[in-house]
Simulated assay, not measured.
Amino acid sequence: MSGKVVLYYFNGRGKMESIRWLLTVAEVEFDEVFLTTRDQYLKLLSDGALMFQQVPMVEIDGMKLIQTKAILNYIAEKYNLHGKDIKDRVMINMYSEGLMDLMEMIMMLPFTPDVKPKLENIQTKAKERYLPVFEKVLTGPIYLVGGKLSCADVQLLECTLMLEEKFPGILAGFPNVKSFQGRMTQIPAIGRFLQPGSKRKPQPDDHYVKPVMEVFNITLPLP
């Protein structure tokens, strides 16, 4: 695995999935080390690899990076997916932060005892707060910022696919977003990532939740 990017996380989506997406679009090969036991996590802690005792952790360019946003920004900068100047970057970051807020609500569902009210809240916020923003900005442009593919575009695709898994037809009232989604899936690297057998992870289930609970020594459902 020498020289190759290595991802340390669970064998599931979570916060690492956006990193997998961005590396895929940048056409960067990566290996994965899946955490399945608490001892693995404690070993990373004792080695000093986890600055804030958290994963995701990514080995890249001789560094051990943590904090999802920092990792995404590094990859975006390195592979020219972060705009042409500081004004582009701040717009990209605003879009990305909003998308991450929405995706994190979905990420928490597997750890939620009563998902029905959570689902209703997510659907409402997606339709009233988040999707209208992207529907408006995509009225003319092919991409969100500067006429050029960026990490925000990749996250928007990831987010809309997650939403459609939970709420089929949710994009019916957002034709510009749906057209954008169709354009993005025509990118060869993305097309390959969407095929069975890729490193894209499926929707989380008990096989994902159980190791997370065990590694972090969580015995009760999260609130």
Rank of each mutant, 00 (worst) to 15 (best):
R183F: 06
P175G: 01
L119H: 07
V177L: 08
Q53S: 14
Y9L: 07
L149H: 05
V28E: 09
M63N: 11
M162D: 06
A126I: 04
E17V: 07
L109P: 04
K43F: 00
M57L: 13
S179E: 14
Q40W: 04
L222A: 13
L163A: 04
E29F: 10
V25E: 08
Y74A: 02
M103D: 09
Y130I: 10
E104L: 13
V215F: 04
P223G: 07
A189M: 08
M91F: 06
M184L: 13
F34H: 15
G62A: 10
P196H: 07
F193D: 04
Y9H: 09
S179L: 13
D31S: 09
L144F: 04
Y9V: 05
I92R: 02
V212A: 09
V25Y: 03
Q186V: 00
I86A: 12
N93I: 07
I187P: 06
E214M: 13
G48M: 05
I170R: 06
G140W: 00
T219L: 13
D31W: 02
F34P: 00
S179D: 13
P221F: 06
Q67R: 03
H207R: 15
Q155E: 15
D39K: 15
Q53E: 14
V133C: 03
Y208V: 15
K64S: 12
L65W: 01
F52E: 00
K201D: 09
S2H: 05
M108T: 09
L45I: 11
V212R: 08
G98A: 08
G191A: 11
W21Q: 10
V55N: 05
D85S: 07
F180T: 01
L23A: 05
V33T: 12
E158L: 14
V25K: 02
Y79Q: 05
K69M: 12
G3N: 04
G83S: 12
K127L: 13
K87D: 15
K116G: 00
L45M: 12
K201N: 09
I86C: 07
W21V: 09
V28S: 08
F10D: 01
T24M: 10
L157W: 03
L65E: 02
P188Y: 09
T37D: 06
M91I: 07
N11T: 04
P196T: 08
E104S: 14
I75R: 02
K69Q: 13
S150M: 10
I86L: 12
L35A: 09
N80G: 12
Q195T: 06
S46L: 01
L81D: 04
R200N: 11
T160K: 02
V90C: 12
L144I: 08
M107W: 13
G48R: 01
P188I: 08
E17F: 09
G98C: 10
L22F: 11
E29T: 14
E104Q: 14
L42R: 15
F111M: 12
A172N: 11
V215D: 05
